[in-house]
Design a binder for these strands. Structure first.
Lengths: 153, 153
DNA sequence: TATATCCATATGCAAACGCATATAATTACC
DNA sequence: GGTAATTATATGCGTTTGCATATGGATATA
């Protein structure tokens, strides 16, 4: 594994620019205001929605997908719960843990917002990349994630 | 420009995951604490450092690279200025605008932190991608940015 | 089983953020 | 050239964030 430092840095800088540019565009969508949901809140709702085990996840699991500190995520879930979008339930196997799952209202909101947001995402990517390039980008991003997981040992 | 909505969404989701994973790793670096600089602050210092015109940029220009609201960036610059890392000067051509440039101390700090951070970035990318893949990722990310610029019209 | 250590989540608090809006300077239009 | 619309940045204010730490359950060790 040779170290191509400058190439790596240039690639990462480009990724950051792309991330910033697209996030800015997506943040400008009307959906968020229409449904009174922030992108971060939606991110959590989305993560819960695609969660395999009956839409229930432990906070620690959600943490991996969302770029937030543990306390910030804990309070974000507070807010979602107080709005009736998610429910906290005790984990039967671990008394310390908390399971979070979407309520019907939360799942419904996620679907509504998700449809609109997915359109924007698809449009933005289609504008810039071919189908093959999208697949290539997906693969490269997945390799980056995989590389990270290896280093966490 | 056909719309490959699902492919685009999968690619974007992978990019978000990679971004989150790497940002988390980079945030854990010791540099930030050692030099009492947050990643966002460094981001601004870096943007100023690579700025062509004598390391001076208008706030609006900085805004494009940093994912922050205009008021947040304005105050971030306040803090950097109060620590003597950047200087605000009036723009000679536009009385509304403000030019921001690195002080010597700011440039020095940027270099120190930059070296350490660049090592981490390079290492993380090298761990996951080959040189060719880095180049490919850079190109795809640049196309994403270019696609965005086109849509801003 | 008592005790120390480790883990998952929550809470106190100061710092930082976003939204709305103010301020001041530029450009557009008549 | 004067008034309106626009642009660049700053400020007020309520909300959200991160850091440090508390709390309470699990695991290990003796």
């Amino acid at each position: 594994m040779p170290n191509y430092l400058t190439e790596g840095n240039r690639a990462w800088e480009a990724v950051l620019s792309a991330h910033a540019a697209l996030m800015r565009e997506f943040a400008a969508e009307a959906v968020w205001r229409e449904h009174d949901v922030s992108m971060r809140e939606y991110d959590v709702l989305y993560t819960l929605a695609k969660c395999p085990g009956g839409d229930a996840a432990r906070i620690g699991e959600l943490q991996e997908g969302v770029l937030l500190s543990q306390p910030a995520l804990s309070r974000l879930i507070d807010r979602l719960a107080s709005r009736g979008l998610v429910e906290r339930t005790a984990d039967p196997d671990d008394g310390r843990a908390v399971r979070v799952r979407l309520t019907d209202a939360g799942a419904e909101l996620q679907r509504r917002v998700g449809r609109a947001h997915a359109r924007s995402v698809g449009a933005a990517l289609s504008r810039a990349l071919s189908r093959e390039e999208m697949a290539s980008l997906e693969r490269l991003a997945q390799k980056l994630v995989a590389g990270q997981q290896g280093s966490a040992l």
